[in-house]
Amino acid sequence: MTAFTRGAGLAAVLVLSTAVGGLSAQADSFKPLQGVSLHMGTKHAVGYYVADADVCQLTLVVGDEIQEDALPQTGSARFRAAVGAGKTARIDTGSGTELEFRCAPDATAMTVEHLKQVAYTSARK
Rank of each mutant, 00 (worst) to 15 (best):
D54P: 02
D52T: 08
V62F: 08
Y49N: 08
V50A: 09
E65F: 08
Q67E: 12
V55A: 06
P72V: 08
A53W: 00
V55E: 09
V46G: 11
Q67G: 01
A81R: 12
L58E: 01
D52F: 08
V46F: 11
T88V: 14
A82Y: 04
A85R: 01
E68P: 03
G75L: 11
V62H: 10
V46L: 11
T74V: 12
E68Y: 11
A51Q: 01
A77M: 14
E65D: 12
A85E: 04
G84E: 12
A82N: 14
D54Q: 04
C56R: 03
A89T: 07
I91H: 02
Q73G: 04
P72Q: 10
R80Q: 15
V50D: 03
F79M: 09
T74A: 12
L71Y: 07
I66P: 10
R78D: 07
V50T: 10
L71F: 12
A77Y: 13
G86S: 05
A77D: 14
T88F: 10
A85W: 01
Q67I: 09
S76G: 13
T74C: 04
F79S: 11
G47D: 07
A53N: 12
A85H: 00
L60W: 09
Q67Y: 07
R90P: 02
I91D: 02
L71R: 11
I66S: 10
D69K: 12
A51E: 02
D92E: 13
L58H: 00
A70N: 13
G86E: 05
Q73I: 03
Y49K: 09
E65Q: 13
L60P: 03
L60G: 03
G75V: 05
Y48E: 06
C56E: 01
V62T: 14
D92S: 12
D69R: 12
V46M: 12
K87S: 12
A89E: 14
G84T: 05
G63Y: 05
E68G: 12
A81S: 14
G86Y: 03
A82T: 06
V83T: 13
A89F: 05
K87E: 15
R90K: 15
A82L: 10
T74Q: 15
D52M: 04
A89C: 06
G86I: 03
Y49R: 09
I66W: 08
Q73S: 11
R78A: 15
Q67D: 08
